[in-house]
Amino acid sequence: MKRLLPILLLTLLFSCNNQAQTNPKQEAVKNAKPIEVPLKNGLAKAYFASGCFWCVEAVYESVKGVNEAISGYSGGYTQNPTYEKSNTGLTGHAEAVEVIYDPKVVSFSTLVDVYFASQNPTQVNGQGPDRGSQYRSIIFYQNDAQKKIIEEKKAALAKQLNATIAAEVYPFQKFWKAEDYHQNYEKLHPENPYIQNVSIPRLKKFQAKMPEVLKEKH
């Protein structure tokens, strides 16, 4: 029985995580009309989910034209999600980042390139050691032009790799900012073992791929 218990628990967890992505409430999110976020002080906002938001935040903040990246939750149907609730995989949300950028310096198209260059694009429901629907890859679009950019780049990458690209494409609805202790986590906690062993290597791998988009200092 002890041998069977872990298997049963894993099966239940896997089932719950998948249910969070396939229930009617989640389908309504996927089929909703996108909400377009207006420019503010000349700055635009874009939204991406790609595993742990600590990693994704650090990646985007290293890019020229990005003013700030904020960690949070998006893509689900639960109101006021928290880190604890999101980690159950039952809120429908994924850990995401809000990227605040200057469209005169960096385009949405380039931000999508950064997205694919900074992850394993074929990994389903996670990145690296982080597994579960709350870590799944999602690119959010706010209008038809953005959706076209995403779908064309996703299709081109699938052809290049001869593989299925895991990232889902969602209409943007709402971004919920994460708890304060998650913000700028990599910068504030460089000694953290996860940061040293997962976040920093992921950041450096991306920077080696796209040096042309990086800020002079990060």
Results as ranks from 00 to 15, higher is better:
2 K>E: 13
5 L>T: 07
9 L>A: 14
10 L>H: 02
11 T>F: 14
11 T>H: 07
15 S>D: 03
17 N>C: 12
17 N>H: 13
18 N>D: 01
19 Q>A: 12
20 A>C: 02
23 N>L: 15
24 P>D: 11
25 K>C: 02
27 E>T: 11
28 A>E: 14
35 I>V: 15
36 E>I: 00
41 N>L: 00
48 F>M: 04
48 F>L: 06
54 W>E: 06
57 E>Y: 04
59 V>H: 00
60 Y>H: 04
61 E>N: 14
64 K>H: 02
65 G>Q: 04
65 G>F: 03
70 I>Q: 08
71 S>T: 08
72 G>D: 02
77 Y>A: 07
78 T>L: 15
82 T>W: 07
83 Y>F: 07
84 E>T: 12
85 K>N: 12
85 K>D: 13
90 L>P: 03
92 G>N: 07
93 H>L: 07
94 A>L: 04
95 E>F: 02
95 E>H: 03
95 E>G: 03
102 D>K: 07
105 V>I: 13
108 F>M: 03
109 S>H: 11
110 T>L: 05
116 F>D: 01
119 Q>A: 06
120 N>D: 15
124 V>W: 00
125 N>I: 01
133 S>M: 11
133 S>F: 05
137 S>T: 12
138 I>Q: 01
141 Y>A: 10
141 Y>I: 01
150 I>G: 05
152 E>N: 14
152 E>C: 08
154 K>H: 09
156 A>C: 09
156 A>S: 13
156 A>F: 03
157 L>A: 05
159 K>C: 09
160 Q>H: 09
164 T>L: 12
168 E>S: 12
168 E>F: 02
168 E>A: 13
169 V>C: 05
174 K>L: 02
175 F>Q: 04
178 A>E: 06
180 D>F: 00
184 N>Y: 10
184 N>T: 04
190 P>G: 11
191 E>D: 15
191 E>V: 08
192 N>L: 12
193 P>L: 12
195 I>F: 12
196 Q>E: 13
199 S>H: 03
201 P>D: 14
202 R>A: 15
203 L>I: 11
203 L>S: 07
205 K>Q: 15
209 K>D: 01
210 M>Y: 09
211 P>D: 14
211 P>R: 08
212 E>K: 10
212 E>H: 11
214 L>G: 01
216 E>M: 06
217 K>E: 11
217 K>H: 14
